[in-house]
Amino acid sequence: MTARVLTTLLLSFAVGTAVAANGSATGSKSAPTLTVNDSVTIGAAPDIVWSTVRDYDAPSVWDPSITSTTLTHGKNNSPGARRHMTTDEGATIDDTLTAWNAHKREFATRTIHPALPVRHYRQRIRVEPTRSGTRLLWQASFQAAPDTDPAKARKAVKHRIHRALIHVKHMLGTNNNPSAAPSAPSDKTADNSGL
Rank of each mutant, 00 (worst) to 15 (best):
M1E: 05
A3Q: 10
V5I: 09
L6P: 06
T7F: 13
T8D: 14
L9E: 11
L10K: 06
L11S: 12
L11T: 07
F13S: 10
V15Y: 11
G16F: 04
A21I: 01
A21C: 06
N22P: 04
A25Y: 00
S28P: 13
T33N: 11
L34H: 08
L34T: 05
L34A: 06
V36Q: 02
V36T: 13
N37Q: 11
D38H: 12
I42Q: 03
G43E: 04
G43Y: 07
A45N: 15
P46E: 02
D47I: 09
V49Y: 14
V49K: 15
W50M: 12
W50D: 08
S51N: 15
V53M: 13
V61Q: 15
W62R: 05
D63N: 15
P64C: 11
P64W: 01
P64R: 04
S65E: 06
S65Y: 01
T67M: 05
T70A: 12
L71E: 11
G74P: 13
N76Q: 10
P79D: 07
P79T: 06
G80Q: 01
R82C: 10
R83Y: 09
R83V: 12
M85Q: 12
M85G: 08
M85T: 11
T86D: 10
T86P: 13
E89F: 12
E89P: 08
E89V: 12
D94K: 06
T98R: 10
A99W: 01
H103T: 07
R105K: 12
F107Q: 03
F107D: 06
A108Y: 02
I112F: 03
H113S: 15
A115C: 04
P117C: 05
Y121I: 01
Y121R: 08
R122L: 05
Q123Y: 02
R124H: 07
R124F: 00
R124K: 14
I125W: 00
I125H: 03
P129A: 07
R131Y: 04
R131S: 15
G133W: 04
R135H: 07
L136Y: 05
A145I: 01
A145F: 02
A145N: 01
D149M: 07
A153G: 02
K155I: 01
K158S: 02
R160L: 02
R160M: 01
I161T: 04
R163L: 11
A164H: 04
A164C: 08
I166D: 03
K169G: 14
H170P: 08
L172N: 13
T174V: 08
T174W: 01
N175A: 14
N175P: 02
N177K: 11
S179P: 05
A180D: 14
A180R: 15
A181E: 08
A181P: 13
A181C: 03
P182H: 02
P185D: 07
K188Q: 09
A190Q: 15
D191L: 07
N192T: 04
S193H: 14
L195T: 08
